[in-house]
Amino acid sequence: MKFTKILHAAASLSAAALIGAGAAQAAERLSLSTWGSPKHFQVEKFVPVFEKLLEEKSGGEFRMKTFMGGEMLKQQFVASGIPQGTVDISLTTLDNWSGQVPEVSILTTPLWTHSMEWTRDNMKPGNPVFDYFDAKFRDAGAVIIALFDIGPPVLSSNFEVTGPESFEGKAIRVYSKGSGIVVQALGGAPTIMGVGDVYSGLQRGTVDGALGGLGGAVGLKHYEVTDHMFMPNGVLGTLLHGYVMNKDKFDSLSPEQQDQLMSAATEARDQMQQFGIDSTEKLVQVVRDSGNTVTAAKPGTPLWDAFATKLEPLADDARATYPAELVELIAAK
């Protein structure tokens, strides 16, 4: 009798072990890639929160493997790597997708005048602008799981900006086709350069200045190799970033898992976006404390108006180039 009980107990333990092993095998494994500074709030304040929320919401059904600093996918290759399945999820600059989704370049034109606060409150699933771009990305093999604004691009440079003419003849690092068009309109020479190469490019004089996000410029210490920072405050367009996911992988998830993933991404994004808003002045002060001169073009000032006037033909071209539906969505308050 005792031997029979022992066999039954052993069988029960074996069954439990098999069930446990099966559950472990059933855990959905996801890979996530970022680039740039791991200390940038778009990474540091999003990834750990997203992972924690996804684990909580799914009851541990997901397992995440994270690759930082462009280890798996560099910034400029996200638009090809995500549809190909190089990784499941990646940080991205939206305008890097202009080859597959031409409409995203409207974000770098003077037509985009929305603040970071507007983005925080509106650029979520269910919002017309978010859903418009998500539909386009799905056609390109990706799903947008989060959109956020890291603030208008700033120019880290070794020349002072006193007006649009300051750009003439200068080699300027740009991060996308759209930002390159803006620099060209100002008389500059745009140079596509990955975020990891900007510091050395400024240090060696390969470029005279570099456009990019404020958080990245501070996190990667561009102020160590420059003398000036220009803050256009949106007159040169903005920097919408996001996290995108391979569409086939997303579609392979159950509807419940998709909801869990999107909910976790949205909550993490909300927290990260607010942190970015709250951190702007602190980041600018780091640049000032380094000895760099900070010049800001604020709406209504002569400097802002000079750039707006110079770029008005570009704005007119954008209105004529992009779909009327999108132009109307972007203009809506």
Rank of each mutant, 00 (worst) to 15 (best):
Q257K: 13
Q258A: 09
Q258K: 12
Q258T: 07
D259M: 09
Q260M: 14
Q260N: 13
L261Q: 04
L261D: 03
M262G: 05
S263A: 15
S263V: 11
S263Q: 15
A264P: 08
A264G: 13
T266N: 11
T266D: 14
E267P: 08
A268D: 10
R269A: 03
R269H: 05
D270R: 10
D270S: 09
Q271R: 08
Q271D: 07
Q271C: 02
M272F: 11
Q274F: 06
I277D: 08
I277P: 05
S279W: 14
S279M: 13
E281T: 10
L283P: 00
V284I: 12
V284N: 02
V284Y: 01
V286R: 06
V286K: 10
V287A: 06
R288A: 03
R288I: 06
D289H: 05
D289K: 12
D289T: 10
D289I: 00
S290M: 09
G291K: 14
G291N: 13
T293L: 14
T293A: 11
T293E: 06
T293G: 02
V294Y: 08
V294W: 07
A296T: 07
A297G: 03
A297C: 07
K298S: 12
G300I: 00
G300T: 07
G300P: 06
T301G: 06
T301V: 01
P302H: 07
P302M: 09
L303Q: 02
W304R: 06
W304Y: 13
W304I: 03
D305T: 07
A306Q: 07
F307R: 02
F307L: 03
F307H: 05
F307I: 00
A308F: 04
A308W: 02
T309S: 05
K310S: 13
L311R: 04
L311V: 10
E312D: 10
P313W: 12
P313G: 08
P313E: 06
